[in-house]
Simulated assay, not measured.
Amino acid sequence: MQIVFYARVSTDEQTAAHQAKQAKAAGFEIDVVVADEGVSGVSTALADRPQGRRLFDMLRRDDVLVVRWVDRLGRNYADVTETIREFMRRGVIVKTVINGMVFDGATTDPMLMAVRDALILFMAATAQAQTEATKEAQKAGIEHAKGREDAYLGRKPSYTRKQFDSVVDAFNRGEAVAAIHKATGISRGTIYRIRDNRGQAEAALARWAA
C-alpha cells in the first residue's frame, strides 16, 4: 500500500509544498507527492492534467489518495463525483486533509454507503458552487465599474485578485480567519470585510482593474 498526496496549484500564491506540509501536519505519512501546477480545476478534468493522468496509472487497490480538499480534484460537479467513484471502484481510498473525509469503496453497509455517497455529492456540489459564486461576484464588480470612468474609485484594495480568491476559497472550505490571515498575510479586518460583503470587495477590485 502506498499513500499518494495530490496537489493542484492554480495560482502563484499557492505551492504544492505548502499543501503537502499541511497534510503531514495533519498526520498523513506521505510516500509520493504528485502535483499539477498552473492548472484550472474548472476547465481541466483530473484525467486531462499531466500529473492527474499519472494518478490513474500509479494507484492500485488499497492505495490511499490524499488531497487537501475535493476541489483539488476539480471544481466541476460531474467530474469530481465520477473521479472519486472511479477511484473507489479501483479499490483506492480517497481522504481529505480538511474535514478528514474518507471515501472507501469497500464499504458494504447500506447506511454507510448512503452517507458516503451523499457526502461525495455535497462536497462536489460545494466545489462547483464556490466557483460559480466567485464568477458572479466578478461579473457584478465589472458591471458596477462599467461606464464609471469619472466616478470616485474609492480606496484601493489592500489585497490582490489572487489573495481575494484565496480568502474566498478558504472560507468555503470552512477555515478560520486566523488560519487565512497566516496563509495569505492579509489583515484580519480585511478578511472579515471580504467574508461579510464579498460582492463589495469584488467590486472594489473591478473598479481598480485589479
Rank of each mutant, 00 (worst) to 15 (best):
R53Y: 07
D36W: 12
G91T: 10
V115K: 01
T81I: 11
A145D: 02
A206I: 10
H144N: 15
E13Q: 13
L205F: 12
T108S: 11
T44G: 08
M1K: 09
G41L: 06
G100T: 06
A7S: 10
I186L: 09
T190Q: 13
V80N: 06
R61W: 03
T81R: 07
D150Y: 11
G27D: 09
R53W: 07
A204R: 14
K182M: 08
A137I: 09
R72L: 09
F103G: 02
H18C: 08
M88K: 12
A125Q: 11
A209G: 11
I194L: 12
L119P: 07
I191N: 09
D117A: 06
L59R: 02
D71Y: 10
M58P: 09
D169C: 10
M111V: 08
R173F: 08
M101H: 15
K156Y: 00
F171C: 06
E37Y: 01
L153C: 05
A127N: 04
V115S: 03
Y152E: 14
K135P: 01
K24C: 02
T126C: 05
D165A: 15
L119Q: 14
L121I: 12
G199F: 14
A45K: 14
E136W: 10
D31I: 08
D104A: 04
A206M: 12
F56M: 04
A179F: 03
G41C: 07
I30G: 00
G41T: 07
R207H: 15
Y6V: 07
Q14I: 02
A140L: 15
R53S: 12
R72W: 10
A151L: 12
D104G: 02
Q128H: 09
I30Y: 05
K139G: 06
V167R: 02
K135Y: 12
G189T: 15
P50S: 04
T96Y: 03
E86L: 13
E136A: 15
R161F: 11
D31K: 07
P50L: 01
I186D: 04
Q128L: 02
R8K: 04
F56N: 02
V66C: 01
A206K: 10
D117K: 06
I30V: 12
A145L: 02
E136M: 14
H18A: 15
L153K: 13
R148Q: 05
K139V: 01
T108W: 00
G199R: 14
Q51E: 13
V102M: 09
I93C: 01
E82Q: 14
A127F: 01
H18G: 13
A45I: 06
H181M: 12
L59F: 10
V4H: 03
A118W: 10
G189D: 15
T184Y: 05
S43F: 13
D63M: 04
R61L: 04
V167D: 06
S40F: 08
G100W: 07
V94Y: 00
V64P: 02
G174Q: 05
H144M: 09
D109E: 06
I84W: 01
P50Y: 00
P50H: 01
A145M: 05
T83P: 05
R75K: 02
L46N: 07
R173G: 09
F164Y: 12
G41E: 01
Y6E: 04
D31S: 11
T83L: 02
R207M: 15
A209K: 15
S40D: 04
Q130Y: 07
V9D: 00
A47D: 13
R193G: 14
D62V: 00
G100P: 04
